[in-house]
């Protein structure tokens, strides 16, 4: 026998039995069963309320005539730390700058909200949305049409009454 081995004495069976812990658990369960105050949210039957600063999948604001508000200035792909925005600018029939291609890879996105913060025309927003399930990975690259058709509320990045959080 090696010198360094220390022999431990086994605890009594009363102490090691699972019965005690099981009863303890049952006690907590019973307590909550009888407690009238309910905390469980009945999702999806009841819609969950999200915090106003919740940052979820994006949404592109549109003008009244249905054009995207985006002017393809290129600031959001520049500021994006995850490099998930692909933008190709072009000229529309009225000579305005507009996004020919605007794609956001929501898998790559880290939902920091910097695209919304940097946007000079308040076009791209992160939104209060979390139900994003899809059957294919490709569907997570949102193109311009999809971003324009999103209808969930947009995120408030700061409290309008207290913009500097003072």
């Amino acid at each position: 026998m090696p010198i360094s081995t220390k022999i431990m004495e086994r605890p009594e069976a009363v102490e090691t039995s699972y019965l005690r812990a099981a009863l303890k658990g049952m006690k907590i369960t019973l307590k909550h069963m009888l407690n009238p105050k309910k905390v469980t949210q009945q999702y999806p039957e009841v819609e969950t309320r999200l915090h106003p600063r919740w940052r979820g999948t994006h949404r592109m604001e549109v003008h009244a005539d249905g054009r995207p508000k985006c002017v393809a200035c290129g600031l959001c792909p520049t500021v994006c730390p995850a490099n998930c925005i692909r933008l190709v600018g072009g000229e529309d029939d009225q000579g305005n700058r507009y996004p020919v291609v605007y794609e956001i890879d929501e898998f790559r996105c880290i939902f920091c909200g910097m695209c919304q913060e940097v946007c000079p025309v308040e076009a791209i927003h992160v939104g209060q949305d979390f139900e994003n399930a899809e059957y294919t990975r490709e569907r997570f690259v949102y193109d311009l049409d999809r971003l324009m058709n999103q209808d969930h509320p947009t995120t408030l990045l700061w409290d309008p009454a207290d913009p500097l959080s003072e």
């Binding site: 393809a72 200035c73 290129g74 520049t78 600018g89 072009g90 000229e91 700058r97």
Partner: peptide, 9 residues
């Protein structure tokens, strides 16, 4: 070059 790319890209 109009609207084709940003100078910093």
């Amino acid at each position: 070059f109009l609207y084709k790319a940003r100078a910093w890209d």
